[in-house]
Design a protein around this nucleic acid. Structure first.
Ligand SMILES: [Zn+2]
Ligand SMILES: [Zn+2]
Length: 514
DNA sequence: CTATGCGGGAGCG
DNA sequence: CGCTCCCGCATAG
């Protein structure tokens, strides 16, 4: 079963590790996820608490080796240094009576915030406005209307621990609504029809990881407590897409309620196997990591064409979807009342039950006491890395992004999509995107007329992430030879060149060894 | 129906 | 007190 890795306390931000040292440190995580990874290149290491996550996420940064990508990595470094130097930026706590007013730069929305991180988003960021996360977070009552608290529901797995044909595990997104979650647990595994099981999150002292949101002036402050000790669930969009597919399928072939429950789930799996590209039911980690998906092939040839081809075949089979969020909101920057703010912007709210971890973010909070981990957010504050780390795995969305862009749709949220390598530097600017554009529309699953006059969701995280790596990475999900492998052989010479070339860059690459 | 939020209130150390 | 957790209520999509 999944087991969270433990790292030496010695690993600090100043620690530099060799690729093999990192590989060793990642070992437990790698095994747990069912794959083995080798870090190809790591010239700079992050903090211990970030190592696990970053090593995985940062692999997305280094998916390319061309000069453009390295340049981007350069910029990341620069940005990182500047943020880390202004230590003040992370000196706040969500409970502070006064939060920083002089925020020089806000963060890009984080889809998978983990460990003890903080972010300052612009109040124009729609994802932040809606307190979204790809973790299954539910509202929890902290008796404090100024600080919204959410706690993690964990992940739904197959109790048979079955694997799909390609070896990936089933990681479903727990329904946020209590009632829906109970119902969900009565359903069958989409892969083997076995019973499903909810793995609860115990990442925060045995309690679920908690997230806190606080609207303050032109900013939205975010703070996370605890490190998830379970695999990532489907993203919200993946889950929604799956649901709508199920709905459509059951409409086509109605059966008895009981059979239907299983058939609903199975239907997708069948598709998945034949299609070989449908990631929705699969582990995010696997997709996420499959940096394999980044290979010279994809880059050197015509990535767009491939992506679009994938898209088209997906669209044929799943030529529909739905629009999770369509509303646009502007926000009054003057007010600082979280409660009223949310009502003003009309952020949809509901959740259900409560469940949370130890914290002081409630009405009894003792404002102003600093937390020991306050110093540990250097990397997290970097828009570059943020963007790069956004890219989980929503391939359907990604693919569709490509389709849309190729069709020159004039959707604001599409503006940045064309950053497919080779690309210009334009998409890498660290400052926030224009309000209302790109970055704010991650979750704006606007509908676009697609080929075959069908609909599939578009404009997801990656639209605004402006990250070509991510887009490329999502183009396919199968493990393929990495740029540094020849067949199954590791190309050390190539690696050495690479290492030399990227000297002093913060670049990691993970490649499955299989 | 499900996702989100709100907030009363029980229970625990 | 400080906090977690359960429950019902309400709203939006
Ligand atoms: Zn199963
Ligand atoms: Zn969790």
């Amino acid at each position: 079963m999944y087991k969270a890795p433990k790292f030496d306390d010695k690993v600090t931000e100043e620690t530099y590790l060799t690729p093999f040292e990192i590989a060793r440190k990642l070992n437990c995580w790698s095994e747990a996820s069912g794959n083995r990874f080798l870090i190809v290149n790591c010239l700079r290491v992050v903090t211990a608490s970030q190592l696990q996550k970053k090593a995985v996420e940062i692999c997305l940064l280094s998916l390319g080796r061309n000069s453009e990508m390295l340049k981007a990595a350069d910029d990341i470094m620069d940005q990182e240094d500047s943020t880390s130097q202004s230590g003040e930026m992370t000196s706040w706590d969500i409970n502070d009576i006064k939060l920083p007013q002089d925020v020089k730069q806000t963060d890009w929305f984080q889809e998978w915030p983990d460990s003890y991180v903080k972010h300052i988003y612009s109040s124009d960021d729609k994802n932040a406005q809606r307190h979204l996360s790809s973790w299954a977070m539910r509202n929890t009552n902290n008796h404090n209307s100024r600080i919204l608290k959410k706690s993690c529901l964990g992940v739904v797995v197959c109790s048979n621990d079955c694997s799909a044909a390609d070896g990936r595990k089933i990681y479903l997104r727990p329904a946020i609504c209590d009632k829906a979650r109970q119902k969900q647990q009565r359903k069958c595994c989409p892969n083997c029809s076995g019973p499903l099981k909810l793995i609860s999150c115990r990442g925060h002292g045995g309690y679920p990881v908690t997230n806190f949101w606080r609207h303050e002036g032109p900013f939205i402050f975010f703070q996370s407590k605890g490190a998830h000790d379970h695999p990532r669930p489907e993203t919200k969009l993946e889950a929604e897409a799956r649901r709508s597919i199920q709905k459509a399928q059951t409409a086509i072939s109605p059966t008895s309620p009981r059979l239907k429950r299983c058939r609903e789930a199975e239907s997708l799996t069948g598709e998945m196997q034949s299609q070989e590209a449908w990631p929705l039911l699969l582990s995010n980690q696997e997709n996420y990591i499959s940096p394999c998906s980044f290979n010279g092939h994809l880059i050197d040839k015509n990535p767009q064409e491939q992506i679009i081809n994938n898209c088209l075949s997906l669209a044929k089979n799943y030529g529909f979807g739905r629009s999770p969020y369509l509303t646009e909101h502007s926000q009054d920057i003057g007010s600082n009342k979280y409660y009223e703010k949310c009502k003003e912007i009309g952020s949809r709210e509901h959740d259900s039950r409560d469940l949370s971890g130890p914290s002081v973010c409630n009405m009894y909070a003792d404002y102003g006491e600093p937390q020991p981990w306050n110093k540990n957010t250097t990397l997290e504050r970097n828009p570059y890395t943020d963007k790069c780390c956004n890219g989980s795995t929503l391939s359907l969305a990604d693919l569709h992004c490509e389709i849309v862009s190729s069709q020159n749709c004039m959707d604001s949220s599409i503006q940045h999509v064309p950053n497919i390598p080779p690309t210009t530097k334009a998409g890498y600017h660290p400052s926030r995107p224009n309000p209302g554009l790109s970055g704010d529309d991650f979750y704006e699953g606007k509908l676009h007329v697609n080929y075959n006059s069908s609909y599939i969701p578009s404009s997801f995280y990656h639209l605004s992430s402006e990250d070509p790596y991510l887009i490329m990475n999502s183009a396919h999900h199968h493990q393929q030879p990495s740029p540094l492998t020849k067949g199954n052989e590791w190309d050390f010479e190539e690696e050495r060149k690479y290492l030399d070339y990227c000297n002093n860059e913060m670049i990691f690459s993970l490649y499955p060894l299989r």
